[in-house]
Design a protein around this nucleic acid. Structure first.
Length: 771
DNA sequence: CATATGTAGATTTTT
DNA sequence: TCTACATATG
C-alpha cells in the first residue's frame, strides 16, 4: 500500500539515487562522492525496505558516529513514522556492545561488562609494563596500545601474534621484543576485570560469531538487511564481522555498503579501502550492483573542480567524475600570514567581512584545522571580534577527571572486578590508601588470582589503613546491595555522598574546585534525566534504565554527542577536519596549510601517509558550499617554540585558475587590515555585546567566571590599579604592568587563589577590565 | 602518606 | 605550552 509519502520520496531522487534506493535484494555497492546525497540514499533505502514489508528491527544499519546514526533515524522517521526507532541503527561499537551484553555468557563475560576507554587501556598497559619490570621509556604505553589495537583490528589474537614473525621482527626493531607478552597479559587482565576496550567490542563479537553457530544463526536470521555507512573507513575486523553476518550458504546477501575511497581518512586506525575492492570480489558472483553517485549537490563548480584536481594527485582510486551544476561560484581565497597570530586575526577579519558582504550567519561558517590545538588562536580572535563560536572535539564531558572519578565508583558497583575503576576510586577522595597499600593489594590479588576488590578485603594492612579500606568496601557493597531495587540515579547519588566525593568537591572553594563541583552535579543530573526521560534507547527489548546500561552508553559518547545545549545558537564552528566529515557549511576556512602540519609530519615519510593527508584535505575543501578560504602562516608557535614552515604542498595542487587573484595584493593591504581590525576590536569591546555560546568547558579547566557574560577588554585597558576579571582566576587587582610595548606583562593579585599573585602576558590573556 | 616543587618529555586524527 | 612523573619535604 503505497502511501503518498512513499511515492514522494522516490520522486525527489535522481536516477542513480533511485536505483540505489530501490534495489534492495542482493549485494549493493554505492560509491558516493561528497555532497552526492549519500545520507539521503541510505535513509530512503531503509525507509523503502520497511515500506516493502521488512520489520524495522530486522534492519541493521551501521555507522561510525552516533551523530550519523541519530540523523539517519530522524530522517527515516519523517518517512515511516515512529517505527523508525526500532531500527538497529547505530555505531559499530554501540550496536555490538548491545549484542555482546545479551550474549555475554557465551564468551565468559558478565552481562554488565565494563567498557575501558583509552585512558583505562593506557593505564592498564602501564601497570603491566611496571609489573614486568620493563623500562617504560622503551616500552611506551601509547605505542603498545596502538600495536595491540591494530593487531586486534587485523584479527590477530595474542597466540597468532606470538607466532607472527613479521610483527615480532618489528617489535625487535623497535627495541620492544616483549610486546607479545604484554598483549597476552593485557587481554587476560581485561577478561579478568570483565572489561572490554573499544576494539574488543568488535573483536569479541567476531569471536562470538565465529565460535557459536547457534548465536550467529540467530543474528543471520534476525537481520534481513544490513547497511554500512562510510564503508571506506571500516577495518578488516569490521568487514569480517559484516561478512560473517551476511555471507553464508543460501543467504539472500541483502547488504548495501556506501562509501567513497577518496574520503578514507582513518587508515591510521586500521581502516582500509581494500575492503571496497574486496567487497566487489567477495560478492561479485552474486549479482552485485554498483551505483556511482557523481553529482555533487553541495558545492560550486570551482570547489568541486579544485577537489577533483587535488585528489587526482593520488594514484589508485575508483574511477569517477564528480560534477556540479551549481554554477562557477566564487574563487578560492588564500590567506598568507606571517605567523599564527596573524592567521587568526586575518581569518576572524575575513569572517566578519564575509558575513557582511554575503549576509552569512555564524552557523554558515566553519574553521577546520588539522590538529585540535590549533583552535586557540582562532578562539582568541573570534572572541575579540565578538563572533560567537563553538569548539568541537577535544575532551568530552565524560572524560573529565571529576566526572570519571564518580563514574569509577559506579563502575565498581556494577562490576567489582573492574581493575581500572578500582585504581581510580580506591584513594579518591584521599583516604590514606597510597601506593604502598595498593601494591600490597595487587600482590595478593596476583598471588591468589583474585580481584583487587577481593584482595582489599583480605590483605593485611596497618590499622588506620584497614579502617579506611573498610569504609571504601562498605560504600561499594552497600550500593551493590541496592542495585536491584534502586534506579541509576538513586545509586549514583548515594555513592556520591557515601564515597565523600561530593563533600570533597564542596570543600574545595577554589575556582577550579567549583567548576569541578558543577561538572560533578551535571553528571548526576545527566543520570537523572537518563532515568526519567523517555528517550527510549533504541531497542526492541524493554527500555533499560539500569546503571549498567547507562555506563555502557556513556562510554561510547564523544564530544559531538554531548546533549548539553546542543548546536543551539548561531555560532561559528571550529573543529578538526576529521570531525567535519559529513558536514557542510556555506563558507569554510581550512587553516594551517603548512608542511609538517597539514600534511602532518607524522605522515610525511610514506606515500600512503601523504595520500591519506591529501584525502583529508579533499574532505576539508568539499565541506564548502560557496566560499572556500585556505590559510597558512610562515611561522607559528609549537610547544612554546617558534618554528618556520613552508606552505603546504597541497596549496600548489590547487589549480591556479580557481584562486582569487588578490593574493598578491594582500601583503600591501596588510597595514590597512591592521587598522581596520583594530578598530573593530575596539568597537566590539565598547558595544559590550557578550560573546555567547562558547562552551565554557571546552578548553579551559573549570572557569571561575561565567563565560557567557565575560567580555574581554583590549590589552591597552589593563593598567595598574584596575580591577580585572580572568576567565580562570576570577577577580583580581593589577599591581603592576611592565615589559615592552608589544609584550606587556601584568602582575595581578587574585584574592581567590591560594597563590594570589600571577604574572600574565597581556598578549595572551583574556582579561575583562571591571572599572 | 600527602603535598610541593622541579624537570623532562611529548605533542595527529577518534570509536 | 602543558602534562606527567620524580623527588624532597612535611
Amino acid at each position: 500500500m503505497p502511501d503518498p509519502q512513499t511515492s514522494s520520496y522516490l520522486d525527489s531522487l535522481n536516477d542513480v539515487q533511485r536505483q540505489a534506493v530501490t534495489t534492495i535484494d542482493g549485494p549493493v555497492l554505492v560509491v558516493a562522492g561528497p555532497g552526492s546525497g549519500k545520507t539521503r540514499v541510505l535513509t530512503y533505502r531503509i525507509a523503502h525496505i520497511i515500506e516493502q514489508g521488512t520489520a524495522p528491527w530486522e534492519v541493521l544499519a551501521l555507522t561510525f558516529t552516533n551523530k550519523a546514526a541519530r540523523e539517519m533515524k530522524e530522517r527515516i522517521e519523517t518517512v515511516v513514522g515512529k517505527r523508525a526507532s526500532y531500527i538497529w541503527a547505530g555505531t559499530f561499537h554501540s550496536l555490538f556492545a548491545r549484542i555482546l551484553r545479551v550474549e555475554a555468557q557465551h564468551i565468559g563475560y558478565p552481562t554488565n561488562f565494563t567498557i575501558y576507554d583509552t585512558d583505562d587501556t593506557k593505564s592498564l598497559i602501564g601497570s603491566i609494563i611496571r609489573e614486568f619490570h620493563l623500562d617504560k621509556q622503551v616500552y611506551q604505553a601509547n605505542a603498545i596500545k596502538n600495536r595491540i589495537s591494530s593487531a586486534k583490528s587485523s584479527l590477530i589474537t595474542p597466540k597468532l601474534y606470538e607466532k607472527n614473525e613479521e610483527l615480532l621482527a618489528q617489535d625487535k626493531m623497535a627495541n620492544m621484543p616483549l610486546v607479545y607478552k604484554i598483549y597476552a597479559a593485557y587481554v587476560a587482565r581485561c577478561k579478568q576485570a570483565g572489561a572490554m576496550d573499544f576494539d574488543d567490542l568488535l573483536f569479541r563479537l567476531y569471536e562470538l560469531l565465529q565460535n557459536h553457530p547457534e548465536v550467529v544463526a540467530k543474528y543471520r536470521e534476525k537481520f534481513k538487511h544490513v547497511l554500512v555507512d562510510e564503508f571506506q573507513d571500516t577495518n578488516t575486523l569490521q568487514y569480517a564481522i559484516i561478512k560473517r553476518l551476511v555471507q553464508y550458504p543460501n543467504s539472500p546477501r541483502n547488504i548495501c555498503v556506501v562509501g567513497d575511497d577518496a574520503q578514507s581518512i582513518y587508515a591510521f586506525r586500521g581502516a582500509t579501502i581494500q575492503n571496497i575492492l574486496d567487497f566487489e570480489n567477495d560478492f561479485g558472483q552474486h549479482n552485485i550492483r554498483v551505483f556511482k553517485l557523481e553529482q555533487n549537490y553541495r558545492s560550486t563548480e570551482n570547489i568541486v573542480n579544485t577537489a577533483n584536481a587535488v585528489i587526482s594527485y593520488n594514484k589508485r582510486q575508483i574511477q569517477k567524475k564528480i560534477w556540479s551544476d551549481k554554477g562557477t561560484g566564487d574563487k578560492i581565497n588564500i590567506i598568507k600570514a606571517v605567523d599564527d597570530n596573524e592567521e587568526g586575526r586575518r581569518v576572524a577579519d575575513t569572517i566578519l567581512e564575509q558575513k557582511n558582504r554575503y549576509h552569512l550567519q555564524n552557523s554558515d561558517i566553519a574553521i577546520l584545522y588539522r590538529t585540535n590545538s590549533q583552535s586557540r588562536i582562532f578562539e582568541e580572535y573570534l572572541r575579540r571580534f565578538n563572533i560567537a563560536y563553538r569548539v568541537y572535539g577535544g575532551q568530552s564531558f565524560y572524560q573529565r577527571k571529576e566526572v570519571k572519578d564518580l563514574i569509577a565508583y559506579l563502575r565498581m558497583v556494577v562490576n567489582p572486578n573492574d581493575e581500572e575503576a578500582f585504581r581510580r576510586s580506591i584513594n579518591h577522595p584521599k583516604r590514606g590508601i597510597g601506593g604502598t597499600s595498593v601494591s600490597k593489594v595487587t600482590d595478593l590479588a596476583r598471588q591468589q588470582n583474585i580481584t583487587l576488590f577481593e584482595a582489599l578485603k583480605h590483605v593485611a594492612l596497618p590499622n588506620r589503613t584497614r579502617h579506611a579500606a573498610d569504609g571504601y568496601i562498605h560504600t561499594i557493597e552497600q550500593a551493590q546491595a541496592k542495585a536491584d531495587t534502586a534506579n541509576a540515579y538513586e545509586l549514583a547519588d548515594a555513592i556520591a555522598k557515601g564515597s565523600g566525593l561530593t563533600d570533597m568537591l564542596r570543600n574545595d572553594k577554589s575556582i577550579e574546585g567549583m567548576g569541578r563541583l558543577e561538572n560533578h552535579e551535571a553528571l548526576l543530573d545527566g543520570i537523572k534525566s537518563f532515568v526519567e526521560e523517555d528517550t527510549l534507547i533504541d531497542t526492541d527489548t524493554l527500555p533499560d534504565k539500569s546503571l549498567a546500561t547507562y555506563l555502557q552508553n556513556i562510554a561510547l559518547l564523544t564530544d559531538f554527542d554531548s546533549n548539553e545545549e546542543n548546536q543551539t545558537g548561531d555560532v561559528v564552528t571550529l573543529m578538526s577536519v576529521h570531525a567535519a566529515k559529513g558536514l557542510e557549511y556555506k563558507s569554510v576556512y581550512v587553516v594551517g596549510l603548512e608542511e609538517k602540519l597539514f600534511p602532518s609530519w607524522m605522515s610525511m615519510d610514506s606515500m600512503e601517509g601523504l595520500d591519506e593527508e591529501r584525502r583529508l584535505f579533499y574532505v576539508a575543501i568539499t565541506r564548502a558550499e560557496f566560499y572556500l578560504t585556505l590559510s597558512y602562516a610562515n611561522t607559528r608557535y609549537r610547544y612554546g617554540k617558534m618554528v618556520m614552515n613552508e606552505p603546504s604542498r597541497f596549496l600548489s595542487e590547487v589549480p591556479a585558475d580557481a584562486i582569487e587573484n588578490t593574493s598578491s595584493n594582500r601583503r600591501s593591504a596588510d597595514h590597512e587590515y591592521d587598522e581596520v581590525s583594530r578598530q573593530r576590536e575596539q568597537r566590539a569591546s565598547v558595544t559590550g555585546v557578550a560573546p555567547r555560546n562558547r562552551r565554557g568547558t571546552a578548553r579551559f579547566a573549570a572557569p571561575k567566571v561565567d563565560p557567557a557574560t565575560f567580555q574581554p577588554s583590549p590589552a591597552e585597558e589593563v593598567q595598574t590599579g584596575r580591577n580585572v576579571l580572568h576567565l580562570k582566576f576570577g577577580e583580581g587587582k593589577v599591581i603592576d604592568v611592565d615589559g615592552g610595548a608589544d609584550n606587556r606583562i601584568a602582575t595581578i593579585h587574585f584574592s581567590e587563589l591560594p597563590q594570589p599573585e600571577k604574572r600574565i602576558m597581556l598578549k595572551f590573556a583574556k582579561l575583562q577590565v571591571l572599572d
